[in-house]
Design a protein around this nucleic acid. Structure first.
Lengths: 218, 218
DNA sequence: ATTATAAATGAACGTTAGTTCATAGTTTGG
DNA sequence: CCAAACTATGAACTAACGTTCATTTATAAT
């Protein structure tokens, strides 16, 4: 009786201005995925949150999973870009590279908590090739970190006792602590996102730097 | 037509020996929660996995949530005991205490991957007081770690520049990397659980030990 | 042996999930 | 100004969910 489709471009400004429906869906979804998890979030919650009815969502995404995929791929792409340019900004010094990368990674997770955490911890609900793609992206990121640490070890600036498999574990630990920071960090807290990111970068460099107690063998 | 209730004590041995139904349910549940998550695991999956029908589960647990609670509380208790005695074994030296605690924490997560990860990352599906209890247990554990780090800072054996809020972040990072290790570690891998735990303990001590670059301010 | 308790069954219940679809209104392009 | 392409609606569908229950069988206690 009262279907009132909205403009695709939206009235960019004014009291009744609305953004594109697709973007509103994505924003509502990322909020709800963060809060309740992908599985527990319903299509009806998402569409209600952005003023639509369930059927309308399927004009923009062909399934709930494709919605998750869109969010996850976008966040992964942005994390990669972010970390890549941080690496380049570190010049040829492995310590500067690693520090910059960790800082950028954590800062991204603190300033885009919802999307970053969705990409990093809801990917298990993707199936088939979507999942493979997400996993491949994650592996690529880990490899970039591992490369930098290895180069530092080779250059003698990082702890020489670290074996390649230990390096992998260290890298996974660093990434996981950054990812989980997106869960516990609260934007209004005493520590700024930059301070938290700096602390993580500091921890990373501390772990791998040469000097101090050698790593355990094995 | 063929209800064949089993012995509560079970025929302890022999070809048809069966353990107590409650334990079989818990074991099936912890496996499925680990693999598919709490929300996605169905009562029917659990009961099928241990040779029961859905209704039978409710003779042992009054709801799906109570099943999760039983698993989570048990694991938390065991982690606490484990970490507490590791702390005592460290004597009065904060570095030995922290190293032992991290080692014990990680080792527990690697040898009880399913239960530990369920306790640590499915607690959000508990409601009301169950959830509060879980959160309180987690906080107690964090406090124990923070106490040790703070005592090391006070004693001058750990980095003096670390503020209390930085200590909290460091502790959360340490715990999170141990927790996540339960997800990526594969028991048959090249690295033994002990070696991985040792490496984590090494990282922890490296981060907090005095000397090296001072932590960022803020 | 008899009784009381515990445990398993299989069918059912009420909900709610993701998704589809005929319909109707809106926007765009020629 | 008309037609084609979009987009939102609201109702419906199927499937699966957690849970309940009357009933039946096994075990434990007296």
């Amino acid at each position: 009786m009262k279907p009132k489709p909205q403009s695709r471009r939206g009235d960019a400004f004014g009291p009744n201005s609305r953004t594109d429906a697709r973007d509103r869906i994505l924003e509502a979804a990322v909020n709800l995925f963060f809060e309740h998890g992908f599985v527990s979030t319903t299509i009806r919650q998402i569409t209600t949150a952005c003023g639509l009815t369930p059927g309308a969502l399927y004009n923009h995404f062909k399934s709930k999973e494709e919605l998750l995929l869109a969010i996850a791929l976008d966040a992964q792409t942005r994390v990669w870009d972010c970390v890549s340019s941080a690496r380049e900004a570190g010049g040829a010094d492995p310590a500067a590279q690693l520090s910059n990368m960790v800082r950028a990674f954590v800062l991204f997770h603190l300033t885009h908590q919802r999307a970053a955490l969705t990409a990093s911890s809801e990917y298990r609900w993707l199936s088939g090739n979507d999942r493979k793609r997400n996993i491949a992206n994650r592996r690529r990121l880990r490899s970039a970190f591992a490369e930098v640490v290895q180069s530092g070890v080779n250059a003698g600036v990082f702890e020489s006792g670290l074996s390649p498999s230990q390096i992998n574990i260290v890298v996974m630990s660093l990434l996981n602590m950054g990812i989980r920071a997106a869960r516990w960090y609260e934007p209004g807290a005493a520590q700024s996102a930059e301070a938290v990111a700096d602390l993580h970068a500091w921890m990373a460099v501390r772990i791998v730097s040469a000097g101090g107690a050698p790593p355990p063998t094995g």
